[in-house]
Design a protein around this nucleic acid. Structure first.
Lengths: 342, 342
DNA sequence: AAACATAATGGAACCGGTTACACTTTTATT
DNA sequence: AATAAAAGTGTAACCGGTTCCATTATGTTT
C-alpha cells in the first residue's frame, strides 16, 4: 500500500513549481514550454501520478458527476435507461453515481442528501412524487434536475423527458378497438403517477373516439413493485362481463400479469387480446409473439443527459424544457378479433 | 443560484469555532456540550448547510465510494447485479459509481483511470481480461479489487466472487444425459473468459461421467455481445448429426439462440431439449416453460460488496478470497427424452 | 479550599489541487 | 538598440472541510 505522489512530488522531481505541473494537467490554462511539458509528463508517468479528483473539485466543483436516481435497476426498462445514460455520460467525460429509491420517499430523501453533499452538477431521476422541498432546494443550488419517465405536476419548473404516454395508450387502445373489441381493459401504474394518469387518459380518449362505453371496472391500477399486477388481472377475469382485450401499461407488472393469465389458462389472443408496454427481446419469443409498445429508451437517455448538463455548460436557466418522444406500436400476434360470445 | 454556506458560515452564525461545528458533524470525534450541539444543529438547519463531500475526502479519503465496472447494464444479469450491489452499498452508507466497458479493453482502461483519480476505496468489476498492469497498480494503491462473475487467472491476488460455473454446467448436462440424450451441445461464452472455460469443463465432466462421446463440434463459443449466439445455433442445426439437447451457458446470448430456434421452427422439447443459464421471469412464461440454471445474484452482490469494503474496514490484506456460490437447477418443461431417430 | 482530572472550546496547520499575480526571460516592433 | 509585448515560471493564497494541540471552564477528590 504505497502512498500516492502529489502534485508537489511531481513538481520537485521535475524541478519546476506546482503551478507549472497544474498547467500541464490542464492544457489551455496557461503557457508551458514544450520541453518543460514533456519533462513533467515524463515524471508524472514514472511516478505514476494521478491527480485527485476530490482536490480538483474543491476549488470550483466542475460538472464531472451526474446523479442517476432510479426506482430500481432490476426493472429492464430502468436498466436499459441506466445503460444508455452511463454511455452517453461517459462519451462526454462525465461519471454517473447510481442510486435507487425502491419507490420509497424516505430513501429518496436520503439519496438526495448525499447528492447535495457531493454537489453533483445534475440529477436525472424518476421521482417518487414527494420530497418537493428538497427538489426545489436542489434547483436553488443550481443543480440541473431532470425528471425522466415521470414528472411531478407540482414542480413545473423542472425539465422533463418522457414518452408520449397519452398517445401511446391511445394508439394501443385504438388498435384493439379497430379489431372489434368493445370490452377493453387497461392495467396501468398508480393514479398518483403522471405516467399512470396519462396512459389512462389516452385509453379513455381512444374509447371515446371509437364510440365505446367506458367502464371504470375495466381500469386497474397496479403498484410499481410487488404482485399487484397479478391481482389486478384476477379481478378483471372475475368480472361478470370480462374484457376481451387488455392493455398492460404498467411496464413493471407485465410479467406478473402474463403469469396470472398463463395460470388461469387464458389463451392469447383467442380469449384475450393483449398489448404490453415492454420491449424485452422475450416478448417476441412468446407464444404468440406479443404486440408491444416500444419505448425509445436511447432517446430518453440522450435527452436526459443533455438537459442534465445543459446549465452546467453555461446555458442560462431559462424556462424548463419538456421533451416528449414518441413510442412505437409494434404489431405482432397477440391481437385478434374477439370471439363471439356464446 | 445561491452559493452554499460553508462550515465557517455556520460557525460564525452559531458563535463558535469551526472545530466545534466539525465535531457536531462527526459525532465521536470530540466532546461538544449538549446545548452547543443543538444550537449548532439548529443553525445548520436554518442555513441549509450541507458539508461538501469533496472537502471531507481531501483529508483522509474515507471509503465512501465504490466503483462498479460492468460490461453493460442492458444485460439483465448485470442489471440485477447492479441493483443488488447498489442496495447493499447503500445499506452501508456507501455510494456507487457505475461504469461500463462494453467489453472493450480501451474503455476499461479509461474507466479505471477515472476510478484511480477518484481514489475509490473499492472496485467491483467484470474484467475484460486485459489491462493487467492497471489492476496491479490499483491493488498497490490499496484499492480493494473484487472480480465478480469472471476472473483473470494471471491475477491470482484478486478477490473473486463467482457462481460455481463448472458444477452448474455439469449438473445441467448431467440432467440432459439422464434423460437419455447422447448428442448434447453447449453454447458458452468465449474460451478466453474463465466463465466460458469453466462451464465447458463442467460440460465435459458430465459427458465423461455419463460415458458419452465428446464431439468438439457440439461445443460453440459465442461472444458476449452481438448476434454470435444465433450463428452458433445455426451452425449446430446444420450439423450432419445435430444435437438433441442443448445447454445455453452464455447468458448474454440466450434470447438470440431462442430466436434462431423459433425461426427455424424447432420445437422444444420435442426436437430439442434446452436448458438456459438465465433467470428472467420470462423463462417461465415461455411455451414450454424453460428449465433454467438460476444464478444467486443477490449472493454475488452481497459477497462482492463485503469484500470490496473489507480492507477499507481495517481488515489487513491477507490472501485473496475466492467465493464460489452454487447456482440452482430449476426443472421446468423444456427437457424431455429424445425422439428416436427415423 | 487546593489540586487535579476532565469537559468544552478555539487557533491554526493541513489535505492536494487551482489560480491570481508578480517576476524573469524571449521574441517582436520600430 | 531601445522598448514593448508575449511567453514561461514561481509564490502564495484559497477551496472547505478535519484534526492536533493549547487554553479555558467545569467538576471531583481529599
Amino acid at each position: 500500500m504505497q502512498k500516492q505522489p502529489t502534485i508537489r512530488d511531481v513538481a520537485a522531481a521535475a524541478g519546476v513549481s506546482v503551478a507549472v505541473v497544474s498547467r500541464v494537467l490542464n492544457p489551455g490554462s496557461g503557457p508551458v514550454a514544450a520541453a518543460t511539458r514533456s519533462r513533467v509528463s515524463e515524471v508524472m508517468e514514472t511516478l505514476g501520478y494521478h491527480p485527485r479528483t476530490a482536490a480538483r473539485e474543491l476549488k470550483h466543483g466542475p460538472p464531472t458527476t451526474l446523479g442517476l436516481l432510479l426506482a430500481d435497476v432490476s426493472n429492464p426498462f430502468f436498466a436499459r435507461l441506466a445503460d444508455q445514460v452511463v454511455q452517453e455520460a461517459h462519451s462526454r467525460g462525465i461519471q454517473v453515481l447510481l442510486m435507487t429509491t425502491q419507490e420509497d420517499d424516505q430513501l429518496e430523501s436520503e439519496r438526495l442528501s448525499t447528492l447535495i453533499e457531493r454537489r453533483v452538477s445534475g440529477i436525472i431521476a424518476t421521482p417518487t412524487g414527494n420530497n418537493l422541498e428538497i427538489w426545489k432546494k436542489l434547483q436553488d443550488m443550481g443543480t440541473d434536475v431532470v425528471f425522466v419517465d415521470r414528472s411531478i405536476p407540482a414542480l413545473p419548473a423542472v425539465d422533463v423527458v418522457t414518452i408520449n404516454n397519452t398517445e401511446s395508450a391511445r394508439s394501443a387502445t385504438a388498435l384493439l378497438a379497430a379489431h372489434g373489441h368493445r370490452r377493453i381493459a387497461i392495467i396501468s401504474g398508480p393514479a398518483s403517477s403522471t405516467t399512470g394518469r396519462d396512459r389512462i387518459a389516452g385509453y379513455r380518449e381512444a374509447l371515446e373516439a371509437a364510440g365505446l362505453d367506458q367502464d371504470d371496472l375495466l381500469i386497474r391500477s397496479a403498484a410499481f413493485r410487488g404482485a399487484a399486477g397479478g391481482d389486478a388481472m384476477t379481478a378483471l377475469l372475475n368480472l361478470e362481463d370480462p374484457p376481451t382485450a387488455l392493455v398492460v401499461a404498467n411496464t413493471a407488472q407485465v410479467t406478473a400479469v402474463l403469469r396470472r393469465l398463463a395460470h388461469a389458462g387464458i389463451s392469447i389472443p383467442d380469449e384475450l387480446s393483449v398489448i404490453v408496454f415492454e420491449d424485452s427481446p422475450w416478448t417476441e419469443l412468446m407464444t404468440p409473439p406479443l404486440t408491444i409498445v416500444r419505448q425509445p429508451i436511447d432517446l430518453l437517455a440522450r435527452h436526459s443527459v443533455r438537459l442534465a448538463l445543459a446549465n452546467a455548460n453555461g446555458k442560462a436557466a431559462g424556462k424548463p424544457t419538456v421533451v416528449r418522444v414518441d413510442a412505437e406500436l409494434v404489431e405482432r400476434s397477440s391481437v385478434a378479433r374477439p370471439k363471439l360470445r356464446v
